[in-house]
């Protein structure tokens, strides 16, 4: 494995345990997703890999070499798109990308070829000579990606690369993420956009309160959910109680919706149950569809406000 993280723990001086015994291994050519709520410990993890933070304990190795002992080597071996915007106001995308490429050791002419190809692939040519202070947040984000990708390290870490990016260019960006992996990089993708991650990653880990609570391929994780279908109930605003699932699977509230896992052979029963809830005025509308990675995520981590012990139990039971 190219990037090997073992028993990584980070406890801040405030006492917050941001990472708690994390084990991850990512191979070259692989796009690995790191999913989790805000505050789950994702950014803390990448900041340790790139040498901005020192782990409290555990090890980080790239190609067998110890990154904790040599953070300057870590910075050379990793290219990094941070969650915050890059400080490039005053520079044009052309200048910013060329400077980063040269700082990563490539020659001016080599960087020019790579930058031209990337700008074309991301459909950014019209902004190439516009001062970054006049660019939209989404275009700036794409430029930040191009800065990380123009001369990639062995490990490419992208922290929320699609934030603010329009849907068309998101697709272009994902294609470039895949290209990075195809050229031999190990791509570590940090996101809380589960739907996009499902389409883009080879494997993923879900982080919650600093711990990896699930890891696998999107299909593998969905298989462990124990429900091939997902019933989504849009609750009536006046309804106070979450309905109990008749299928023995999780019913997880997410905002005004409730996600219910449904086995394939119970599709008819699920529709009938949802219709009865609708007639009783508890549910405004419902949809039945194939389960997604989001359902796995919701079952494990819960909605925006709370974790789901019930969902995790069902998940763990199925996995066992």
């Amino acid at each position: 494995m190219l990037l090997q993280i073992e028993e990584l723990t980070k406890v801040y001086r405030t006492g917050t345990r941001a990472n708690d015994g994390i084990n991850l291994a990512i191979d070259e050519g692989e796009v690995f997703g790191l999913l989790g709520h805000n505050g789950a410990g994702k950014t803390t993890l990448v900041n340790q890999v790139v040498g901005l933070l020192r782990p409290t304990s555990g090890s980080i190795r790239i190609d067998g070499r110890d990154m904790v002992a040599d953070p300057s080597l870590a910075r050379r071996l990793c290219s990094f798109q941070a969650q915050s915007q890059v400080p490039i106001d005053g520079l044009t995308p052309r200048q910013a990308i060329d400077l980063l490429g040269q700082l990563r050791g490539a020659s001016k002419s080599e960087v020019k070829v790579r930058r031209t190809r990337l700008m074309e692939a991301l459909d950014l040519e019209e902004w190439i000579d516009v001062d970054a202070s006049r660019l939209s947040g989404g275009v700036k984000r794409l430029v930040a990606f191009a800065m990380a990708a123009v001369v990639p390290g062995r490990v490419v870490m992208l922290d929320e690369p699609t934030n603010d990016v329009d849907p068309v260019r998101r697709r272009l960006l994902w294609r470039q993420v895949r290209t990075l992996a195809d050229h031999g990089a190990a791509v570590l993708l940090v996101t809380h956009n589960v739907i996009e991650a499902e389409r883009s990653v080879d494997r993923l880990a879900i982080l919650d309160e600093g711990r990896v609570i699930a890891e696998g391929t999107p299909a593998g994780l969905k298989g462990r959910l124990g429900a091939a279908l997902r019933l989504e109930l849009v609750m009536d605003p006046d309804a106070t109680d979450v309905p109990t699932s008749p299928f023995g699977l999780s019913a997880v509230p997410v905002g005004n919706r409730v996600m219910v896992g449904v086995p394939t052979d119970a599709a008819g029963q699920a529709v009938a149950w949802a219709e009865s809830l609708e007639r009783a005025g508890l549910v405004e509308e419902f949809t039945l569809g194939p389960a997604t990675l989001e359902d796995v995520y919701v079952a494990l981590v819960g909605g925006a406000d709370a974790g789901s012990a019930e969902g995790r139990e069902v998940f763990d039971a199925t996995a066992a």
């Binding site: 900041n47 790139v50 300057s72 050379r76 915007q85 890059v86």
Partner: peptide, 17 residues
């Protein structure tokens, strides 16, 4: 300000001495 907005951390993550 650079510390607060994270841009100093970004510059510190660059592969330069």
């Amino acid at each position: 300000e650079q510390k607060t907005e994270g841009s100093l951390a970004y510059m510190r993550s660059l592969p330069v001495p």
